[in-house]
Simulated assay, not measured.
Amino acid sequence: MTNLDTRPGWARALPWVLLGVLVLAQICYPLTGGATRAGLTVGTVLLGCLLSVTHALLTRGARAAAALVATAALGGFAVEAVGVATGFPFGTYDYSGRLGPRLLGVPLVIPLAWTWMAWPAWLAALRLARHRAARIVLAAVGLAAWDLFLDPQMVAEGYWAWHSPTPALPGVPGVPISNYLGWIGFALLLMTVLAVAAGPAATAPDNRDGPMIALWLWTYASCVLAHAVFLGLPASALWGGVLMGVVVVPLAARLRRRSPA
Rank of each mutant, 00 (worst) to 15 (best):
A11M: 08
G97D: 03
P176E: 12
V42S: 03
W239P: 05
L189D: 11
T115W: 06
L46E: 09
P205S: 10
W16P: 00
R254N: 08
P200K: 08
A197V: 07
V155Y: 00
L194D: 04
G61A: 05
S164T: 14
A11S: 09
L194S: 02
R63E: 11
V175S: 00
W122L: 05
G100E: 04
V141T: 01
L74F: 15
T36R: 08
F149Y: 12
L74R: 08
L31W: 13
M117R: 08
A56W: 11
C223L: 13
H163G: 15
A133I: 04
Q153W: 07
F186K: 02
A124H: 07
A195K: 01
G241P: 03
P120F: 12
N3P: 00
L112H: 04
M244F: 10
L4K: 09
W183A: 06
A198P: 05
H55Y: 13
D147Y: 08
A195R: 09
F149A: 12
L22K: 00
D209K: 11
Y93L: 15
W183T: 10
T32L: 05
L169R: 07
V106M: 04
Y159N: 10
P89V: 00
L22E: 04
D94I: 13
R12H: 04
G33A: 15
R63P: 13
A133M: 03
A72E: 15
I184M: 05
A156N: 10
R130C: 02
A118Y: 11
P120K: 07
T44K: 00
D5G: 12
P165W: 09
G34F: 10
F149S: 03
L103S: 14
A124Y: 09
M244S: 02
M244I: 00
V141Y: 00
V137F: 10
L68M: 11
A252W: 06
V21Q: 08
A38C: 08
G39M: 03
L251N: 15
E157Y: 08
Y220T: 01
R7H: 05
V79E: 04
Y93C: 12
A85I: 05
G182S: 01
G232A: 12
N207C: 10
V141R: 00
W146K: 00
G171T: 05
C223R: 01
D151G: 01
T92A: 12
L233Y: 03
